[in-house]
């Protein structure tokens, strides 16, 4: 009986090997397993796929018919170093979020590094317009947000969510945006109009630095929605592991 089973296993293995072309890649299976694991790890349930795809469609139109033209005009009249400085300023301003989430995850070294970078950039970097910490000392930000904090305590992504204006996400990270929002100093601007203007300006500035990239994705990917969600989850998984 055991011999029969062994023969059967050998035959099946031989058939599979032949189908793959064993002579082509000796250890193909380990490569296949590696990629399969990567794909499965970010395969998040998408029960609201039709709604999510609708939101992606909305964001897509918003980008091409509003954001891109405005950002293009802004880019035309604003030199790149200025736009990069504006980007640096807002990144530096997001320090409270990074610090709090480092602490919540008990990453005290990360918190200390964040404090160091913020101090350098806010002083030597002229209120954060220049990222001296990274450019001169090679000190990177320790990016942490509340979505990552929840993940560090065992929360999974739960389900795919595509957010209006913000794009790909999942339910955990979408909910995590709420506490992070209150750690953003911009939130405490008195005037609602000023708040919207600052947030809009920040988005336009960021877009101006990245015009053309989304167009490239649209041209080269078979399913842009799927690609964006997949890339998002892969990136998040990496950040959570760090």
């Amino acid at each position: 009986m055991k011999i029969s089973v062994s023969i059967a296993v050998c035959m099946v293995t031989a058939v599979i090997s032949t189908a793959w072309g064993a002579d082509e890649f000796d250890d193909f299976e380990q490569f296949e397993d590696e990629i399969r694991q990567q794909v499965d790890a970010v395969d998040v349930a998408d029960p609201l796929e039709q709604v999510n795809r609708g939101i992606w469609w909305f964001n897509d139109k918003l980008y091409f018919y509003l954001l891109k033209p405005v950002a293009g005009g802004y880019k035309y009249v604003t030199p790149q170093p200025v736009r990069e400085s504006v980007y640096n300023f807002f990144e530096n301003l997001a320090f409270p979020k990074r610090l709090a989430n480092n602490l919540l995850q008990l990453k005290f070294r990360g918190a200390a590094e964040e404090l160091r970078n913020f101090t350098f950039n806010s002083t030597a970097g002229c209120l954060g317009f220049f990222n001296v910490a990274e450019n001169h000392y090679g000190w990177n930000d320790r990016e942490e947000d509340f979505g990552q904090t929840m993940a560090s305590y065992g929360a999974g992504p739960w389900m795919t969510v595509h957010l209006p204006l913000f794009g790909p996400s999942n339910l955990r990270d979408a909910l995590g945006r709420l506490p992070d929002m209150f750690l953003d100093p911009v939130m405490y601007v008195d005037s609602w109009g000023a708040l919207m203007a600052i947030r809009g300006g920040k988005r336009v500035n960021y877009t101006s630095l990245n015009i053309g990239f989304y167009e490239g994705i649209k041209e080269e990917q078979l399913d842009v929605y799927r690609f964006l969600q997949d890339a998002y989850e892969q990136n998040r998984l990496q950040k959570i592991k760090e």
Partner: peptide, 14 residues
């Protein structure tokens, strides 16, 4: 940043 070229295409192709 954790985004695999091959895995990204694999998902779409699947």
């Amino acid at each position: 940043e954790g985004i695999s070229l091959i895995a990204s295409y694999r998902s779409q192709f699947d």
